[in-house]
C-alpha cells in the first residue's frame, strides 16, 4: 500500500518537485569556489575564507571519477533505509565530476561494479531510498549511467 507521497530527505539539496531537477550548490562570491551542499550560514569558503556565497544550480551531467559499492546494510542510525540486514540491496557510491563546477559524492543507480566504469557519462536522478510506514517515499539524489538513462527514457 502506498500513499503515492514523496518527500526529499532534506530541504535545500535539490530543486523539487521538478521535471529537470538540479542539485543546489553554492559559489563563493569572492573566489568562485563551488561547493555542495549549499551549507550553513556559518561556513566559510574552504579556499579563501569568504563568507558570502550565492546559490548555484549545478549541472545535471558529469563523468564518473571513481566509485565503490556498499554491500552490507550501513549501521543505522544514522542510516534510515526501511530495509533490514536481510532485505538490504547493495548500492553503489561514486564521485561525479560536473565539468568546471565541482565533484559530487552520490549514490549511483547502477549497483553492479561490472557495469560501472571510471570516465563514464552520468546524469542526475532523484530516487527513493527509503519508505515510511505510511508509504511516503523518501527521496535523495543519485547519478545514473547516461546510456541507461537514455534506455529508460
Amino acid at each position: 500500500m502506498t500513499t503515492g507521497q514523496q518527500i526529499p530527505v532534506a530541504e535545500g539539496l535539490f530543486t523539487w518537485p521538478s521535471d529537470e531537477p538540479r542539485l543546489i550548490g553554492a559559489q563563493c562570491v569572492r573566489c568562485g569556489l563551488v561547493v555542495f551542499p549549499a551549507g550553513t550560514d556559518t561556513a566559510a569558503c574552504q579556499r579563501c575564507g569568504g563568507t558570502e556565497v550565492s546559490e548555484k544550480l549545478l549541472s545535471d551531467r558529469g563523468t564518473l571519477w571513481t566509485f565503490t559499492t556498499q554491500n552490507f546494510r550501513p549501521p543505522g542510525p544514522p542510516y534510515d533505509g526501511a530495509d533490514t540486514a536481510e532485505t538490504f540491496q547493495p548500492y553503489a557510491v561514486g564521485y561525479v565530476e560536473l565539468p568546471g563546477e565541482v565533484m559530487i559524492e552520490a549514490r549511483l543507480t547502477e549497483p553492479d561494479p561490472a557495469r560501472l566504469a571510471i570516465g563514464q557519462q552520468m546524469r542526475l536522478a532523484i530516487v527513493p531510498y527509503s519508505v515510511r510506514p505510511d508509504g511516503t517515499e523518501i527521496l535523495t539524489f543519485a547519478f545514473t549511467p547516461q546510456a541507461a538513462a537514455a534506455r529508460e527514457a
Partner: peptide
C-alpha cells in the same frame, strides 16, 4: 544529517573509491 540517513557516512566508501 541526510549524509548519514542516505547511507553515505561510511569511511569505508572513501577507501574503496
Amino acid at each position: 544529517a541526510w549524509y548519514g540517513q542516505t547511507g553515505l557516512f561510511l569511511t569505508t566508501h572513501f577507501f574503496g573509491m
